[in-house]
Design a protein around this nucleic acid. Sequence first.
DNA 1: ATGTTC
Length: 476
Amino acid sequence: MNLSKFRQRGPFEWELPASGRMRVPGVIFASQALVEAMDDKVGEQIANVASLPGIVEAAYAMPDAHWGYGFPIGGVAAFDAGEGGVVSAGGVGFDISCGVRSLHTGLKLADVEALKPRLADVLYRRIPAGLGSTGALRLSAREMDAMLLGGARWAVEAGFGDEADLARIEESGRMAGADPAAVSEQAKKRQRDEMGTLGSGNHYLEVQVVDELFDIRAARAYGLSEGDVLATIHCGSRGMGHQIGTDYLRAMVIAAARAGIALPDRELACAPLDSELGRRYLGAMRAAINCALANRQILTRLTRQAFAELFPGIRLPLLYDVSHNTCKEEWHVLGGQRRRLFVHRKGATRAFAAGHAELPAEYRQVGQPVLIGGSMGTASWVLAGAAGTGEHAFASACHGAGRAMSRHEALRRWQGRSVVDELAARGILIRSPSLRGVAEEAPLAYKDVGAVVEAAERAGLAVRVARLRPLVCIKG
DNA sequence: ATGTTC
């Protein structure tokens, strides 16, 4: 990134002052090395987002940011409905409510080390993975609507988990305001057979060990000790989210023109929050959030069954479940005023600071668990919402390592087979239906996740709690 | 991310 137009606010904060059509500045939270390595398109995209009607404070990019559809991935932007604010399908992304859920296994490294190959095989057999994969469930129209309204709560009531799971999920497992009638028949049809499936791309199920603790107090609150084994699921709303994104993007291109919104980029298509289309999109997007929460709940059940094959009687309670592709209505204080905002987080994790009323009581003293999925074969991280430093970017943090190159470039550089073999030699077992997918997800196709989370911490977005090392990865 | 181009 050419930084000549940027002003450095602090060692980990870079401001692109408002100019031209920008209504607010753009701000990137990153180290100098990370921001210099970012594509110039990230700067162009935050400038474009900053020009949208009703945006407040700034258009933000997290340290893992990279070029995306309209909005950068790793982007955060909040809008005020009372000031003509908009909602944008491209600001949420196509994989609506893609997110990360971590489960405690109660096992230690020594318990699983010798069983790793069997664990990998059992998980791979039970977890449907890959493009177009289908699950054991076939939802009727009535069940589909109940799922879209109920999210993980619907899944728990259908036998896919325990009541206790719900307290460890954002929104207590059920996003309010979902409108199944705003979801097209096509979107429902695509999802009918896909509940309880991992999908493809960067989605995975990983068995991990807590390698090192960085914040003992928060680790204790989260129930983490060195040597603990976790199971982590990274996936989203499958075909449904993608179809909703496609449907509404098309409608928003027309609606934006009709509302007289000049779009700097067609991919920023949006609708006023205070409009019929804006309300319908929010209803459909919230239904897709519930779809993703239900999907991760069903995958949790499959994961528990797989572990129980090797460890009879085992329980896998939730650590937490975060969604990192959403638009959520939240209250934030701006210039001393409490305001109701619609916060788009696209490849960005909500990161409530300590004391937030929506956090489970046992986490309230240390802040929200922020689950960071690393790239395949590299570390993942648990962070805590910005305790002590105050919230930034509407209480948001990074979501992963962030791609450092395109899938195309990764395919040119690596072969899936050798990536699998090299990771196996390091004790990391990969199981995937797609060697091509594995090549696209090669560890070096991503930024250094350690540098990303360090920048997130030093920018004040979140605090590092624990680093996790992968043992087994079921790759979609 | 994605029935990888209705």
